[in-house]
Design a protein around this nucleic acid. Structure first.
Lengths: 157, 157
DNA sequence: TGCTATTGGTTGCTAGTGCAACGATTGGCG
DNA sequence: CGCCAATCGTTGCACTAGCAACCAATAGCA
């Protein structure tokens, strides 16, 4: 009698969550089970593999990860000997982070496999569809950033 | 020198996670802050608003939510008087769930606002792009389900 | 009928996450 | 120079979520 106002399986945020969850799950098989990396740790590894030298704060440029999350991920990686901290003498509040040789080895082992998963995912789309998807994600992300309470940015003040 | 193997901000699973997180965050403003609902609780409410009578197990048809998550969400909603349980005499393992009048009132208050958020999100896309997006999400979700370890389905056995 | 496997659902335990408060350092400005 | 505000990062705390073990009920089958 009371007709549905929202059909959950058609609801965009729900569908995005499901999709994101499934892809994370697919990826976790690799970096969690095989390399013992959490999602934040994986992101730190990839970022350092990409940029070589970054501060903890740079790890979440768009505020995707909370700084406490980054802090703990880095600590864990340091304890495992995959990441080193080097004080920044110009600004002793922050520290430079870099991969150790072991860290880079893991990066070079994980990254291709992660890319393979992405590729298998995208294999169901044509090249045009992939471009379209990328564009749509960008537009939606930009808009979502406007609607979200705040960029999770800071929180201190 | 070591050229990046993965560029995180181009990596599809990462981008999907960011987008999903931002939309969840935008939605949470409504159902969390204004109505005190968690994500699982919100999903239960919406599902019962949609189907009227469901079992706890039906709440996560695609295994998106773990059954323990559903269980606790239902308990909380029952305690708040938003949901009632009714034994199913034909199979006393399961219970029928339904919204109370108060639960339905909340549903009718939340649902339009959630839809409004979705609409504001989709406002940056043309009608054709929206159709395209829907199709792309479906294709990717289907594929991701194949790549994910398992549907999070059960786990007992 | 009786025995085992399966299913719906709950709960104890543990790990992860965000928030808020904090310490340390630096920047800005009177 | 000296003080207040802002910034980087850490940590205690509370909450959530998932896993696994469990109970109750049913189904399948000898």
């Amino acid at each position: 009698m009371p007709e549905p106002l929202v059909v959950l399986e058609d609801f965009l945020p729900y569908r995005l969550n499901v999709l994101a969850g499934l892809t994370s799950s697919a990826l976790a098989q690799i970096y969690a089970e095989r390399f013992g990396l959490s999602i934040p740790a994986w992101r730190v590894i990839v970022t350092l593999g990409q940029y070589e030298l970054r501060t903890a704060r740079d790890m979440a440029p768009d505020g995707v990860m909370h700084k406490s999350t980054v802090s703990r991920a880095v600590s864990a990686l340091e304890k495992r000997g995959l990441v080193v901290r080097r004080p920044n003498l110009d600004d002793r509040r922050e520290e430079w982070l870099a991969l150790t040789p072991e860290g880079r080895a893991i990066y070079e082992a994980v990254a291709p496999e992660a890319l393979a998963v992405e590729e298998r995912l995208l294999a169901v789309l044509t090249s045009d569809e992939q471009k379209m998807l990328s564009s749509l994600i960008d537009k939606l992300t930009q808009q979502a950033r406007l609607l979200a309470p705040r960029d999770v940015g800071e929180g201190d003040a």
